[in-house]
Amino acid sequence: MTVSGRESRAGLLFLLPWVIGFLAFTAGPMLFSLWLSLTHYDMLKPPAFVGLENYREALADDRVGTALWNTVFFTALHVPSQIVLALGLASLLRRAGRGSGFFRTVLYLPVMTPPVALAAMFLLLLNGQHGAVNGFLGWFGFQGPNWTTDPVWIKPGLVVMSLWTVGSTAVLYLAALTRVPVERYEAARLDGASPWRQFRHVTLPGISGTVYFTVVVNTIASLQVFTEAYAMFFGARAKQSAEGDAALFYVIHLFQEAFGSLRMGYASALAWGLFAVIAVITAVQVRLSRRYVHYEGDRS
């Protein structure tokens, strides 16, 4: 089927709002921040060109190293935890039968919680001395850690909190699981495949496209983690530093430099640094996906 020139023009016209929005609110600011990253700019005086000085400073900044380590550590814990739990919940939901609609709603509801409210709630739940999480662990004879004040446990605590919104990933897996043809499981069972082998050789290849998508999206989101950590450890108490910087994530450092120290040029350089990190990690994931992701039909 061919598309007439008139239809093409109509299509482009419908695309125009998005294109204008993209140029005005994404591409434009990105180019402007690229320029700012080569300047000293405090919002009050005009930007002064300094070449690559901001990038050189970022490479020597101890807090950038700390923030990057915290962010990568959090991502390395958060993404696998989110995916494994979401997949487990989706598998259970698939077997829920007539109640699946109800449980799907219940599972997704926490995603609607505003992030700052979530942070405030988890500050109470994760309190090491009187929090409900440690109270629960206490029933089994474990003395839980100080999740919100011990630098060793702050990031794992944030990972625990991040699982509150696992429902958004779980519903994607549920949709993917229902698309795996039942005949493949029947064939596998006839061949004597155990449940694990069915999962490994039927389920996983069948949902690999969704797994790939959620890994990429969750990785990018984790590398940009900000709101909950800022609300818990920096924002509400207007603190510039907390718990030995154990919760100093990259975007929090960027935000502090931009709006605490008014160093827009340096913060822009940090933003482009993060952009580069995300681009590299995503490129690696895309490369790996060619080997592990299976698509139905012809990919061309």
Partner: peptide, 11 residues
């Protein structure tokens, strides 16, 4: 110590 002290103070 700070971790316990601060967690207690937060309550």
């Amino acid at each position: 110590g700070w971790a316990s002290f601060k967690a207690f103070r937060d309550t």
